[in-house]
Design a binder for these strands. Structure first.
Length: 329
DNA sequence: AAGCGCCGCAACCGCTCGCAT
DNA sequence: GATGCGAGCGGTTGCGGCGCT
């Protein structure tokens, strides 16, 4: 019937943590290290669920947790990464040292999403703003909507320390057989799409709250990797907004001629793959970005424009990267 | 000053995945 | 290969603070 509870909840304390509980938890982890969350409360003498302890440690007590408000730079990175990765908060957080997924998620829900939904946000990232995505992180989190991250399991590290061969530190993103079906064919499609259609690809996300709802799983990122070759980009999917195709084509031209895009391409040695992605979200801005696969592990993202389509008014706003409206149709 | 509503943050919940057996 | 457990992740909830009336 129902799920078994994650732990015995009878008699456990809930709600806010007290300073005393924090101290007990911090002391215990300082002495014994992280992990074994299930048994931790009992061993430490805390009347808390193991999950609660883990969350408290990760989101609050850990020494490297950065406090204070999100800076403008961090905000820009969050916006860019969210446009690229979707609601993959832990992955976004991994690119913001000291910030937790919970913090970023809260910040997005309370600050950014509202601004974007009401079109009031001015995208103030400079034209030279480039977000570099560690593709090994992307890869490790690939095809997962949620769940544990490979290689981060305390048991894995424990077993590795116990001379049991742990699964590689994974310096090179490795092809995954389970992924091969999902990666190779889209990659092939992306290749053909890129070849047949210039260098354009699009990521369609009909529901921003369900980033994986479409078959292409745009929230899994724009990239996948085939077994041997370089990073490939996922194929085009067309959405209801494709009436705007001519505008997207126009913007693609803008992107192709954009300084930051051009510079990024040259910075990548001119050997990098160059694709322009659009994230099409009804009633949301369409972030127009160029992706450069700089090397096997690094992806640079250069924003060069934003499209906003108002469904009610059926008006398409073409904004430059500073948020200035260039024209409407 | 009191009541009310909004907002932000911390914490909880359920789902999913990786690993061990 | 099947199963169970431990743990990570994203969505949601609830409480406390703050501002407005």
């Amino acid at each position: 019937m129902g799920r078994a509870p994650c732990c015995e909840k009878v008699g456990l304390k809930r709600g806010r943590w007290t300073a005393e509980e924090d101290q007990i938890l911090a002391n215990y982890i300082a002495e014994h290290g992280e992990g074994s969350w299930r048994s931790l409360p009992k061993n430490a003498g805390l009347l808390r669920c193991g999950k609660s302890c883990r969350l408290r440690w990760i989101n609050y007590l850990r020494a490297d947790v950065k406090r204070g408000s999100i800076s403008k730079e961090e905000e820009d990175i969050i916006i860019m990464l969210h446009a690229t990765l979707g609601n993959r908060w832990s992955l976004i957080a991994s690119h913001l040292p000291g910030r937790t997924d919970n913090e970023i998620k809260n910040y997005w829900n309370s600050h950014l999403s509202r601004q974007i939904h009401t079109y009031r946000r001015k995208y103030t990232a400079g034209p030279d703003t480039t977000v570099t995505i560690d593709m090994s992180k992307l890869q490790s989190a690939d095809k997962r909507r949620c769940g544990r991250t490979p290689g981060r399991s305390p048991r894995s590290s424990a077993s590795s320390s116990k001379s049991k061969k742990s699964k590689q530190p994974d310096p090179e993103p490795e092809p995954e057989s389970g992924d091969a079906k999902g990666a190779s064919s889209p990659a092939t499609a992306a290749t053909s799409a890129a070849h047949s259609d210039g260098a354009r690809s699009a990521v369609v996300d009909p529901d921003p709250n369900q980033p994986n709802s479409s078959s292409g799983s745009p929230a899994e990122g724009p990239c996948s990797e085939d077994a041997t070759g370089p990073w490939m980009l996922d194929p085009i999917e067309l959405g209801d907004l494709w009436e705007a195709e001519s505008w997207i084509d126009a913007l693609m031209s803008i992107g192709a001629g954009h300084d930051a895009v051009t510079q990024g391409f040259h910075a990548a040695g001119g050997q990098a793959q160059f694709h322009v992605f659009y994230r099409i979200l009804p009633c949301l801005p369409i972030y127009c970005m160029a992706y450069f696969i700089v090397d096997h592990r690094t992806l640079s993202v250069v924003p060069f424009g934003v499209l906003c389509y108002c469904l009610e008014a059926k008006i398409l706003y073409n904004l430059d990267i500073s948020g200035k409206c260039l024209e409407t149709i």
